[in-house]
Nucleic acid binder design. Sequence first.
RNA 1: CGGGACGUAGCGCAGUUUGGUAGCGUACCUGAUUUGGGAUCAGGUGGUCGCAGGUUCAAAUCCUGUCGUCCCGACCA
Length: 568
Amino acid sequence: MRASQMFAPTLREVPAEADIVSHRLLLRSGMLRKTASGVYTYMPLAWRTMKKIMDIIREEMDAAGCQELMLPIVHPAELWQQSGRWQVYGEELWRLHDRHGRDFCLGPTHEEVITDLVAGDVNSYKQLPLRLYQIQNKYRDERRPRFGLMRGREFIMKDMYSFDRDEAGLDESYRLMHQAYTNIFTRCGLNFRPVAADSGAIGGDTSQEFMVLAESGEAGIIYCTSCAYAASTEIATAYLDKIPSQAIPEPLEEVYTPDCKTIDALIDFLGVLAKKTLKTLCYMADEEFVMVLLRGDRKVNEIKVKNHLGCLELNMAKDEEIQQHIGSPAGYLGPVGVKNVRIVVDQEIPYLANMISGANKDQYHLKNVNPGRDFPIDDVADVRLVEAGEFCPQCRHELAFARGIEAGQIFKLGTKYSESMGAKFLDENGKEQLMVMGCYGIGVGRTMAAAIEQNHDEDGIIWPLAIAPYHAVLVPVSDKDPDQMAAAEKIYQDMIRAGVEVVIDDRRERPGVKFKDADLIGYPFRVTIGSKSLAEGKGEVKMRSGGKVEMVTLDEIVSYILKKMKNM
RNA sequence: CGGGACGUAGCGCAGUUUGGUAGCGUACCUGAUUUGGGAUCAGGUGGUCGCAGGUUCAAAUCCUGUCGUCCCGACCA
């Protein structure tokens, strides 16, 4: 490729809209342009990188016994109504209708379409297992698209669906995908970690996310500093000390606590620790008013609450709703004496004694509140957020926190979709069985952005070799010097012949401009042909990832780079 | 969805308070001098000031509506 002809308009200034490194660098390097909010154009350089990531994905999928196909992006509403997700998926589902007024949506994921397909064409155990994947645009009308490619409304995803005859088959498909994903992200040169995850709107039980570790990540990870335990903060658990309090329950006592609407104010006023108090939260779970109890120093994990209740919508109750069900203002809420309200108790609570809670009476709290005696503890669940410094549920060593970018996720779905879409087969005994499914996704653009988050410096991107748009850039320092140009041209041709993907910067620009662009775009190798080195019959080879400039004889430059590439 | 802000040349911005018919930097084009880390000089191209109404002799500027974009929040009992 000749830089003089390449469509890669680099920017000196950062567009105001870009906030995180990957977005800024993608725009500045001329790789990405925005078309609408959350909708982007991949420019030629970015598309080369995207294709390389997709090729790695294809190789690993095919090696794991998957077949590529292409499902439609436009889905008829009927399929989504059949699975129930036409309602459940909510506003994120991008809906449209045709000229006859029939409802459709743009596919955010393809369980419905593929399960319907397989249900029609697979009838026998002899056709299983079946593992089908595709790489295509997905559509999710995000409430807030942001961070460039990290959270777009249109994005490219690899999605694979496995169909097995039983749980054991699913386990094998899941294991294969876990290995394939590990291979893919390793080959892309990423520092990542698989973590246990919530299965969310997709459904199913077991799930893991592949997190690319980065400070800018939207997702939180709790991991053990000693063993292999790692989970998304959404579902992370901690070691639970099941030793009941030895304290002798004392009688309830009402205390006057003026202006103690927060736990901080309360513990200041009473001079006690937050862990001696109870935190009372009220929610509207769909139409039901629910109270959630936690130790005062804990934070609630709403995902866990939602999963426990099995509701679609979970919102903090409004003041009017609290007044209506409890008859007390927020700030003085507690579980004692509450009637006709479901009380979800965090699993730590039953082991506590003589706690302080709101009295459901303005300006008053209760002392010596005892679980079981003063309020029911029959609805116990793990509903709290686990934080760094707590202890591992598996080995009791300390837990730590990290941020990550969710680049991929794998799920065991079970029979949720085969049931609703009617995906059945006959086994050896002629008996009808439901197929057992799994689904497995990778965000291709997000993987590219994550690679930049992890590999950059103040000058630009530092591409891992495997997904760099080109391997090398060739910079003749002066376009007026025919010797330099001739030497560069020869190396350019040699590189192409040797399979090195190279850009020759033949633009009539000053060397500073070429160097700045080379660093910004992040070619792994830069070969400079200047008058000084040329006088000795040499060129300069520099790696973007660091290290010093190597002077290499012109004839040996190609083999030098090939050798380096082999070791990367 | 709630809150905040912004829309003026490809990009970054000023001008809006106080109405008078649009400017700076950069990018781009031409020429000259330059040439090892985003050159200098000279000359140039490019904007219905997001859109639609309204007020006015006159609107980027004031009023109304509308569309778009970005940021923050959605853990407070």
